[in-house]
Design a protein around this nucleic acid. Sequence first.
RNA 1: GGACGGGUGGGUGAGUGGCUAAAACCAGCAGACUGUAAAUCUGCCGCUCCUUGCGGGCUACGGAGGUUCGAAUCCUCCCCCGUCCA
Length: 313
Amino acid sequence: MTGLPRLLVVLGPTASGKSDLGIRLAEKLDGEILVCDSTQVYRHFDIGTAKVPPKDQGGIPHHLTDLVEPDEIFTAGEYRQRAIKALEDLRRRKKLPIIAAGTGLYLRALLEGLADAPARSEELRERLRARAERHGAASLHRLLARLDREASDRIAPRDTQKIIRAVEMRVLTGKPVSEIHGSGRNPLQGYDIRKIGLLPPRTRLYARIDARVEAMMAAGWADEVRGLIHRGVPASSKPFQFIGYSELRNRVEAEKDPKAAIPAIQQATRRFAKRQITWFRKEPIVHWLTGFGDEPEILAAALKVAQVRTQLP
RNA sequence: GGACGGGUGGGUGAGUGGCUAAAACCAGCAGACUGUAAAUCUGCCGCUCCUUGCGGGCUACGGAGGUUCGAAUCCUCCCCCGUCCA
């Protein structure tokens, strides 16, 4: 066990101080950061996705950000592949990988792997979406019920996104979802993985979120959005769906005061944080720390978790 | 001082005699989620008791009375708020 190279994971809801803790740990333990965040993979969307600006990175290399252009679609499978490459690179250079994870699905895709399922098919999705438009979301669910009863029982009739994915898997492989998932995952091997979870008290976390949104606005978030519009990033592009970006784009386009969007953005971010917490609560073997990543006691506790010889159960 | 309009659960707001613990939306809480995941979706949401049931009890629609078998809904008075007239 002790022969395996270590892999640190810092996970937690947005604004819990993951990036900060990650950098401090990297400084002490000769590590580098692997960002695990579905929004930071997009170039040009910087302020609202809370990327750590280079001047604040403390000289610690940050990987897995700015991977694609805004009009591209990025997926968990893609993330897994890139992350594995990055891990191999760090291993060669004998650096401690520290994953700063805010996107639970991506983290799971990397650590536990994904089933051997087909990638998205845009044409098929186009057809399915058209069907939903014409005959309603319920018709898609009925279609899935015919193709894959078990999957349709598990997915809510209105959850069009998941229904489409299930139909897609069934059509592309001819196999029901349960069979594909039953075939197993391909977990990441060869690491002594230590997971540190940041879980600050809810009220304090919410207060930080509120303050951070204000700070992002003060840092020129609206101008960033203006720039994105000018460079021709379409409203339909994925990153414009991210929290804050949709609200700000609307306001900027309508030439309304962007500041008026602040309460709505704070609200959406708080709800997002809640969803992250729900997801991470299920994550196996996490050393939970009830505080923010920038607090000295938390750093001390995290260092302990990272360095003990035998992994605690 | 007078004339209207209005006061409903944390918020907005529907409800004009029983089907109403009270629509809807928001907020809040909890949850699901294996290739869009900062996405998408689900449940709960006055208090309380138990044999957890489309169960019982209590409290609730500004306040106090009243009418009625029955009131958030009708009547009386009072208190607030808004607009207008003086």
